[in-house]
């Protein structure tokens, strides 16, 4: 994805100002996944594999419907099935399409040490550019949603691109295009929020009083959002985080401490320089040398 056709607003391991003078007038984009409409058919999973030329191994059944069982470098999105008995005693089968959330404040990008391996376009999509990826896996540690996967084949990180290649030419992502129920929609983030609001109203009218939009502020909002029946309990949806944010550990690791540490090293070196130039070297004078030889002689002559 080197020859990207989208404008970049943020790039991993880069400290200079990115070109931001121009940005989409319509705002950023978003994919809205209406969990309440999703029937878990996995068409999106299949479309993703087809469009992106991904072919995972044929695995095995582990006693659940989730297949593959987890995200992999070849499976950028998987359906997560959770059986939940609500307080009324009725069963709910909550099916969530898992994958990259395209955080406005992406932990992966923050963590990435390789310039240009992770970029965020002005439209909000967070994309991995594998040719710049060094395979260190920092993005894995950085991501609050446990999304990126490093391929054993080429040691590069992979995840949902939000079909940046399609979006760049004005098409919706492959999974959106294929979703038979219209559970996934795509558009400007504003439009998606409006659409979500309608859906939430419908859900509320059906007794889901806590229906709501999942667009967590902790990561600055996401460009993949969910409509949830139980927005008050995201963890019901296969452990979706209630209040995700970049881990404080990662914040500390990748925050201000880093430049400070660099400065610390520089200061240490400079301190040496100044010490040397102010105090000067610690040398052994001719006299000291002679004294030492003399002393040595004396000692040697001492009786043992």
């Amino acid at each position: 994805m080197a020859l990207q056709s989208l404008d970049i607003k943020r790039m991993s391991a880069t400290t200079v100002q990115e070109p931001v003078a121009r940005s989409p007038v319509t705002g950023t984009v978003a994919k809205l996944i209406d969990v309440s409409k999703c029937i878990g058919c996995k068409a999106c999973q299949t479309a993703c594999m087809e469009w992106n030329d991904l072919r995972d191994e044929v695995g095995e059944t582990t006693g659940v419907y989730d297949n593959p069982l987890d995200l992999t470098p070849q499976s950028w999105t998987v359906m997560r099935f959770s059986e939940y008995e609500n307080p009324k005693g009725d069963l709910e089968w909550l099916i969530r399409k898992d994958g990259c959330m395209h955080c406005e404040d992406p932990g992966c990008l923050k963590a990435c040490p390789s310039p240009g391996a992770i970029v965020q376009y002005t439209n909000g999509i967070v994309d991995f550019h594998q040719e710049n990826c060094i395979g260190c896996g920092y993005c894995v540690a950085g991501c609050p949603f446990n999304v990126p996967r490093i391929s054993k084949q080429d040691d590069r990180a992979y995840k949902c691109t939000l079909c940046s290649d399609r979006v760049a030419v004005g098409q919706e992502p492959a999974c959106v295009k294929t979703c038979p129920t219209g559970a996934i929609t795509f558009g400007t983030k504003e439009d998606m929020k409006e659409h979500a609001a309608e859906r939430i109203e419908d859900l509320k009218s059906r007794g889901f009083s806590n229906a709501g939009l999942y667009n967590p502020a902790g990561v600055g909002g996401t460009h993949v959002m969910y409509v949830l029946h139980h927005a008050d309990q995201p963890s019901l949806y296969h452990g979706l985080k209630s209040d995700p944010s970049i881990s404080p550990t990662v914040g500390l690791w990748k925050g201000l401490t880093k430049p400070l540490a660099l400065a610390g090293m520089a200061v240490t070196a400079l301190a040496g320089w100044f010490h040397y130039s102010r105090i000067g070297p610690n040398e052994v004078s001719k006299e000291e040398e002679a004294e030492a030889v003399a002393e040595a002689k004396r000692i040697r002559e001492e009786a043992p």
């Binding site: 880069t14 400290t15 390789s114 310039p115 880093k258 430049p259 660099l262």
Partner: peptide, 13 residues
């Protein structure tokens, strides 16, 4: 290590 440590030293790659 420094190459990975901070963008300012990425040239060390």
């Amino acid at each position: 290590g420094l190459a990975m440590f901070h963008p300012a030293t990425s040239w060390m790659y």
